[in-house]
């Protein structure tokens, strides 16, 4: 069957709305998107993560992340029962190309995907001297690359190591929670490609979002809660050794 763009638009009105902005893209983003009607977060289900690295690769492709820097990455933990405080952690190339085979030696082994926590009380936006990084009204921590000085104070202030200096732009760079996608009704690139559903985009202001039921019925944690950052990436089934 002959598929044309016109036909696609007719077929799927929901996608059509997004498509107008997909390639042409206007500064206002997709219509009907109200900044104050959303509060974005993410759910990571650790027992579902298989460490395939799809999210890392998709993120790099979607966002043009330079080689050697990571907006999202995966860590592999190995915790022997007698030293829970000293886990062995590795993340070769951020887990972009998966992980080498690992013998099951009786300890506890699991993968932990990491990304910006889009903290509600983010230390990184707090320290920016000029207002080049900020929390958007819909709860996403963003960087204005045409305003950033490249002083890197925000990189120092992030307790999670989520920021880096982009060598192409010489400005701070980080996960945008695929802001250009979520404002068009799409999910993030990492969530889109996650084959096991270990990553789920969530809108905390949407009462119909399944996140609410999930948070109610599961023991969910955030990373480094003692940092009091108001992190909005929630981890289900996270071991105490994760840091």
């Amino acid at each position: 069957m002959e598929i044309t763009r016109r036909r696609l638009l007719v077929l799927l009105p929901a996608a059509a709305v997004a498509w107008k902005y997909v390639l042409a893209g206007t500064p206002e983003g997709a219509p009907n998107y109200e900044l104050t009607k959303h509060w974005w977060a993410m759910l990571i289900d650790i027992p579902k993560c298989i460490g395939c690295g799809s999210c890392v690769r998709a993120c790099a492709e979607e966002n043009d992340v330079p080689e050697g820097y990571y907006r999202t990455w995966i860590e592999r933990y190995h915790v022997a029962d007698w030293k829970i405080e000293r886990p062995e952690v590795e993340s070769p190339d951020g887990g972009k190309y998966g992980f080498p085979p690992h013998a099951d030696d009786g300890g506890k082994n699991f993968f932990v995907p990491k990304l910006c926590n889009h903290c509600a009380d983010s230390p990184c936006t707090q320290v920016c001297p000029v207002g080049a990084t900020f929390i958007s009204p819909d709860g996403v921590v963003l960087v204005d690359k045409s305003y950033c000085l490249g002083c890197r104070y925000c990189i120092q202030a992030c307790p999670y190591g989520c920021r880096f200096l982009n060598p192409k732009t010489n400005t701070a760079d980080k996960c945008t929670l695929c802001y250009h996608r979520i404002t068009k009704g799409l999910t993030t690139a990492c969530c889109e490609v996650c084959p096991t559903g270990a990553r789920q985009l969530a809108d905390l202001k949407n009462p119909k979002d399944p996140i609410h039921e999930f948070l109610k019925t599961h023991a969910v944690q955030i990373l480094k809660p003692y940092m009091a950052t108001g992190a909005k990436v929630f981890y289900n089934g996270m071991d105490g050794s994760v840091r």
Partner: peptide, 14 residues
């Protein structure tokens, strides 16, 4: 800046 960041073209169609 919000609009500029939101206007980036997508690579994955969904």
């Amino acid at each position: 800046a919000i609009g500029e960041i939101a206007s980036r073209p997508v690579a994955f169609a969904g």
